[in-house]
Design a protein around this nucleic acid. Sequence first.
DNA 1: CTGTTAGCGCTTTCAT
DNA 2: ATGAAAGCGCTAACAG
Lengths: 345, 345
Amino acid sequence: MSEEPTLDEPKRRPTIGDVAKAAGVSPSTASRALTGQGYAAAAVKAKVLAAADQLGYVPDEFARSLKRRTNRLVGVVISDLRNQFYADLAAGIEQVLGAAGYQMVLVNDDGDTDRELAGVRTLLAMRVPGTIVTPLSSEAGALLTSQGVRVVEVDRQMAESQCDAVLVDSEHGARAATGHLLELGHRRIAFLIDELEWTTGVGRLTGYREALRERGVDYDPELVVRVGFGEGSAATAIASLLEVRPDVTAVFAANNLMAEGVWQEMQRRKLRVPKDVSLVAFDDLPWMSMVQPAVSAVSQPVVAMGAKAAELLLARLSGTLTGDPRTVWLEPTFERRGSTRRLPG
Amino acid sequence: MSEEPTLDEPKRRPTIGDVAKAAGVSPSTASRALTGQGYAAAAVKAKVLAAADQLGYVPDEFARSLKRRTNRLVGVVISDLRNQFYADLAAGIEQVLGAAGYQMVLVNDDGDTDRELAGVRTLLAMRVPGTIVTPLSSEAGALLTSQGVRVVEVDRQMAESQCDAVLVDSEHGARAATGHLLELGHRRIAFLIDELEWTTGVGRLTGYREALRERGVDYDPELVVRVGFGEGSAATAIASLLEVRPDVTAVFAANNLMAEGVWQEMQRRKLRVPKDVSLVAFDDLPWMSMVQPAVSAVSQPVVAMGAKAAELLLARLSGTLTGDPRTVWLEPTFERRGSTRRLPG
DNA sequence: CTGTTAGCGCTTTCAT
DNA sequence: ATGAAAGCGCTAACAG
């Protein structure tokens, strides 16, 4: 019979006791040598390290966390990794966390509050000292803070939550985009929005309305279309709106998913952008500058937002930052591209 | 003084002992009631559950894992969340894992073997029973298996690794794409590849060469361009190649990143696709069907690949699947779109 | 059906 | 500078 380990046999991993024995010292000395905490003679330390290396010893983080009553895990709750927005956010977070020796634990909530709560429960069970969340409900954050877990909200903020947050100035971005359309002479601008429960939705709508008000253009509620979350919802929504309101000359899609839907629908209907209808998006994605014409969009510093959130959290965890909750605002920039044109006449 | 918890005070979380006390039973009984393992009178169970709920008790996974000597964590090692390919992969994995009550622990290696090893060490420390990796080196996988951790490789396979794998038939996909170009009359087809160390790179190149051979077209090594990993590398590479070899009529970019680079460079040089040069990509992304003309591409079932890998791993962990390593092959499909045209004459 | 006991692997006083 | 002992929170034997 071969000595090759088969795929099916389990394996007892070396403990600090094994290392200690191999080095001829006590477990406590081995611990001190390994962690660098406390005294350990240089010679002993070397011997322990060698033994550990030889045995392929990797300390059990669970046992360590149990003893130390803390760990270097950070929970991250997002909605959908397949949406590049969230993926970029996670990437930004991971980058900062990793550099600080923290490990990210990603939880997907799929936009579902039940799953969000379940995810939070998982993180609680893992005793993460801190979390970064794109909140769906206020319960999740409340539960976390009630258990003493640090929370930083990113992208959007739940009204009740008394925690740090890193946000993009949606209102400003939406006002810039809408203002741009208005300056080009557009007056009937459709606004597609998928939610009005979060600060993002509200902020974007507010920015839209403010731009109208600034230019003395009447707000027409019929032009504000509430879009569902499913794939194709935006396409359907814009299709029906154009049916009823063929006088619409421009569309403002309040996120990248809806922008994609609208863009697809335009292609399908052989509507020319920007000749037949102008288009602007909130949240810039690579494809928007690759299509013809490129889509004008409000660009958010997504990776930076994630990074900033991680920094804030780390500062809280280390005690560098104390006191009242901080809200960090990041400014989006409006990228004018080819999808908008001046209305003739 | 207010009783509101401030942001800065720590918090002692309730233990199973607290729950037991509140319910007037012993910790072991509380444990049995909570986990459902072992006997517990209905009335007692209810009382314990109520107490736990009331205290907001969440079992400590670390303590539990320490005792049970196993846990429901799965480590996932990928290169770059910002690349939609990896994000989709992670999403597919997460979906299956989550449904089975497992938690994914994501580790980013940024394409760096040192970081890969560090990540593996982290996973080892977390005592994950299984991992899913897009391998960079064979050491990482070897270390994992040597410690008795189950490994499933996705996307690519390290030669030495004796572990399960879920792969896409690169060779077949590349042959289809190249064959398509050949049938359109192209003879001088540039092939852009970023690595030849992995099965993906080798497979794609092999497919390219096989297609040439099948049609009796000579293989011209000069047309195979080794591209760096950095942003813009592909653009530079194709630019220099076209300088030397203006006779190239088609380009095959072996992944989505390089396809994007080439596409950008075409725009910059005002080269018409497919009039001046035809383009095909390996790994289909949404933007490829949105640009004009849409890019013909070999489409990989990325999410399914992640899901399948997770299923395989779960089967191993549960003991449903035993015995020799399995390799699951997934078939890519070639999507013909507008970026290729028949060569006149 | 329930409580007592022991111990998972580690770190940390506290003596020495 | 080192070791012995205790204990983090939990569960699994084992008695009862």
